[in-house]
Design a protein around this nucleic acid. Structure first.
Lengths: 201, 201
DNA sequence: CAGTATTGACAGAACGTTCAATCAAGGATA
DNA sequence: TATCCTTGATTGAACGTTCTGTCAATACTG
């Protein structure tokens, strides 16, 4: 469409769209070519060796989205009453981004069938987020702002608390029916979490 | 294999296995026939009109698994210190059941691509569990055992807290590496939740 | 004119599905 | 009891379609 992006990018964008909505098997080279606005599927093989390579290229192209929640040094010493709502807001902001939504559908959908992708998704994304959260929570226990506890568990609990609401946004519209907003959920859920880990005086 | 179960059941079992590991598109009639131990794919069409019907039959066959967490009347008035760990244990027991695991992979994997399935999964399963949990939590607030709060949010938070640990069991083995056991996680996570909702004296 | 981009046509394989034919078992008939 | 007939189960082969990937020819661009 736009003249600025070249054919390769057009194909990658179309492939991303097709793969994320139909899955690797469900998306066809023909449908991708059509969505990319090229006349012949053969052109795709001019830019990519085969379907699998195109799929990997799509993943690599959108990989940077993972680095959303990073830079743990800046918030390490700030109090959880500030940091945790911030993380939650950033989380929901990411989840509300249509591109990120497609990426999650794509990754989860394929990781369910491909152990190698599950490994990447688990280690490079989820475990990374959990690790940085564990470090932060440990630090806060150290500082006496949270009571001592197993941070492996609290890190899971914190990100987990946000998951059903996020799932409602991404692929389970039925969960939206009780009208709970992201903001309300952050307030209540983070409140429970903080209150539950408040150090005893 | 066993003589007791008839052909139809053999085919359904094999189809369940194939669909859950490879997805609807990835599983072929031929591979299902092979897994079911029948010589010809044609036989499948003797028992089911087409692939789609076979898929639906598989879903219906394993639908009862959803009714695991039901019967809200029995625990409605029992204290959360007992009930919540029980629910969590039941949850992890379900998640550890290989058949239930396959069912979840299948439902989630296909619901990501089929809005109609997402509707069923959301409404008939997830929303149902959340609703019964909301009712229970409301009742406990009424009884003064939990402080007043938005139960839409706390219900999500409670089941959500368990999700990452469950995901580790089902399809993200990387999450198991820090060695947190289900029991430990229940203890810590439920502890945070209860402490976070303790009524102020 | 050289090199790249793009195309239509096409080959080979796999897929879902259909079909005619075979087989095993049981009931009816004599 | 011996024979026929019906019925459902099962199979191998085949059909039409679709998919991935190849190729040679053409259009475009510097």
């Amino acid at each position: 469409m736009t003249e600025a992006e070249d054919r390769r990018t057009q194909i990658l964008d179309a492939a991303f769209e097709e793969f994320s909505t139909k899955g690797f098997k469900g998306a066809t080279i023909k449908s991708i070519a059509g969505a990319a606005g090229v006349q012949s599927p053969a052109l795709i093989y001019h830019y990519f060796p085969d379907k699998e390579a195109l799929f990997n290229a799509v993943l690599e192209t959108h990989a940077p989205i993972r680095s959303a929640v990073e830079d743990p040094t800046t918030f390490m010493d700030r109090p959880p009453e500030e940091v945790l709502p911030e993380i939650a807001r950033a989380y929901f902001a990411t989840v509300s981004n249509p591109v990120a939504q497609r990426m999650m559908k794509l990754m989860v959908g394929e990781a369910l069938r491909r152990p190698s992708l599950a490994e990447v998704l688990g280690r490079a994304t989820v475990a990374r987020i959990l690790d940085s959260l564990k470090k932060y929570l440990s630090r806060q226990v150290e500082l006496g702002r949270l009571r001592p506890h197993d941070v492996r568990s609290s890190a899971r609990a914190f990100v987990g608390m946000l998951v059903p609401q996020a799932a409602g946004r991404i692929f389970l519209p039925a969960l939206r029916e009780d009208g709970l907003t992201d903001k309300e959920h952050i307030e209540t859920a983070v409140g429970i979490f903080l209150e539950g880990l408040r150090p005893e005086r």
